[in-house]
Simulated assay, not measured.
Amino acid sequence: MKKEVRQAKIEQLITQNEIGTQEELMDVLAQEGIKATQATISRDIREMRIIKEPNGSGRIRYTIFKGNSPSEEEKMYAAISDSVTDVTLVQTMNVVHTLPRTANVLSAIIDDLKKEEVVGTIAGYDTILVISKNKEDAKIMNDLFNKYLRIGRS
């Protein structure tokens, strides 16, 4: 099966179903007659920019991160205000603590913006490591996080 067809089916399935793991996705694809290895699914998830986010009942589900809209900066500011609980500047990095299960969404937004002050991010369950190329860029990002963190607390 062609990658484009498989990925279109994956998008349809995660939009219509609450799928939260690669195993669940592989099972649903198999039910649709599409056989794919875990490595293929993992690659598709990365290429399609599929992220995990909580649904209304607290269960984690896959969704496709949509980026490059004109309001991505506002989305980042809102995500900082809504989810960041603390930020610590460490040399050329910012350690950003978030509410549980929100780190990967904010990290994806930051990555998508391709800010010149950010070399890359690493996200976990409730922590993001924002890596900058120098102390000045890290300070700019720290100031940005702190500005919108305070807005969320007021």
Rank of each mutant, 00 (worst) to 15 (best):
S71R: 04
I51H: 02
G20L: 02
K133Y: 08
D143G: 09
I19E: 06
S42P: 03
Q31A: 04
R59Q: 14
N146L: 11
K3D: 13
I131K: 02
K35R: 06
K115V: 05
L89R: 11
N17C: 09
T21W: 05
F65T: 04
P70F: 04
F145S: 03
S57N: 15
V119E: 04
K115D: 13
I64F: 08
A108E: 14
E32T: 00
S69D: 14
G124A: 15
I50K: 03
A123H: 04
N94I: 08
V87P: 01
E73Q: 13
T40H: 08
R46K: 08
N68Y: 11
D112A: 13
V118E: 05
E73P: 07
T85P: 07
N134R: 09
V119Y: 00
R101P: 05
F145T: 04
Q91E: 15
I151Q: 08
K2F: 05
N142H: 12
S69N: 15
T127Q: 14
K35N: 03
L113A: 04
P54R: 06
D137G: 03
I64C: 11
Q16K: 12
Q7K: 08
G67P: 03
V95C: 09
T37W: 03
V118M: 07
N55G: 11
I51S: 10
S107T: 06
D27E: 15
T85D: 14
I80G: 07
E116P: 07
N104M: 07
E116N: 10
K2Y: 02
R101M: 15
P70S: 04
T92V: 12
K147S: 08
N142K: 07
N17W: 02
I10L: 11
Y125K: 08
Q12P: 00
A138K: 02
I19N: 06
V95E: 13
I45F: 09
G152Y: 06
P70M: 02
N68C: 09
A8Q: 14
I80L: 06
L13C: 11
N55C: 12
E32G: 00
K115A: 05
T37D: 10
L29A: 01
V95F: 09
V119A: 03
E23C: 08
V105L: 14
A108D: 06
T121H: 05
R61E: 15
N94P: 11
K9W: 00
L144N: 09
K133W: 01
E11C: 00
L129P: 00
T88S: 12
Y77V: 05
E18P: 07
G33L: 00
K139T: 12
I110Q: 02
S154H: 02
E11G: 11
R153S: 04
T63F: 08
T15M: 01
T15G: 08
D112S: 15
S42G: 10
S154D: 06
M93I: 11
M93H: 14
T102I: 00
Y77M: 09
A138H: 01
R101W: 12
I19R: 04
M93E: 14
S154T: 02
V84G: 12
D27C: 10
S83Y: 15
G58T: 10
T98F: 00
A39L: 01
